[in-house]
Design a protein around this nucleic acid. Sequence first.
DNA 1: GTGGTTGATGATAATACTTATCATTAACCA
DNA 2: TGGTTAATGATAAGTATTATCATCAACCAC
Lengths: 152, 152
Amino acid sequence: MHKPASDNAQDIHSSGLKATWPRIRILRLFQQTTQRHLSAEDVYRSLLADGEEIGLATIYRVLTQFEQARLLTRHYFESGKAVYELNEGQHHDHLVCMMCGRVEEFCDPEIERLQQQIAERRGFELREHALSLYGVCSNPACQAKARAESRG
Amino acid sequence: MHKPASDNAQDIHSSGLKATWPRIRILRLFQQTTQRHLSAEDVYRSLLADGEEIGLATIYRVLTQFEQARLLTRHYFESGKAVYELNEGQHHDHLVCMMCGRVEEFCDPEIERLQQQIAERRGFELREHALSLYGVCSNPACQAKARAESRG
DNA sequence: GTGGTTGATGATAATACTTATCATTAACCA
DNA sequence: TGGTTAATGATAAGTATTATCATCAACCAC
């Protein structure tokens, strides 16, 4: 199921980066975690909890490098804080629950086509896009919370 | 063309906020500026340049209040820094030039419909969304810069 | 394998953006 | 107009991120 550490080192290496222990551990975390989107702080705490000796500065550096190397992609989800996710080739967009923070992914070729069309019409060469839908998920607790807030 | 200050005060007042001088000036700035999207720092510098005595803390507070009052809307545009724009009722999305930072707006009912459909299928009650397209605009200088960057 | 070079690490200082604190001041309504 | 209540501005504090730099480890040539 999960790639062994050696493949992992290979991925890092072929991005022109030295396959160091911190880098291997960070990449592995993204490959193994159930929580797909992680902030620098999330990664830091998770690795500390696993008994790793790692500095926060290294996390930030490596996340930036991995993003440039296209191993990870970065999002902001309308908050000042960056989160990263594994880049698995297939582009997708996000559906975010405003109550519990859960993130679902989706991909709609028709929307993608329309985006391309809009960019072309305005003389833009489209490079990338970010589409996030915000709402309340089907969890009853979230719906209750949403009702409470609107009464608030 | 532009609303007089009194209407301006009216808008603020009917949002349940006192029509203070700093608030009137900030709202007026958004109504009169050609640069549609402004950060807290942009607003601060602009008002200082106009000879206003205003504190940065006030700017942050007022921008947050105006957003809650739906006079302004906030965006992050994939950077850790918030920018605000006047809320004129009509929802729209953004097309951002990655070279010069220019922002164009667009609105596509078909994309909106598809978004609604996606949310429904997954049991989400859609509240809002953010769609930003990033690319290179038709300005020759931007296209030259883009080519230079891709050569690295 | 080993060693030298080069780049990576981690501690920490610095920066950028934003929010909280609090004494003073101004807006609003009776 | 005066009193109440909320807003302001200076500044401290908080949070997220980047820069600095001495030490250390990965990699390639041998």
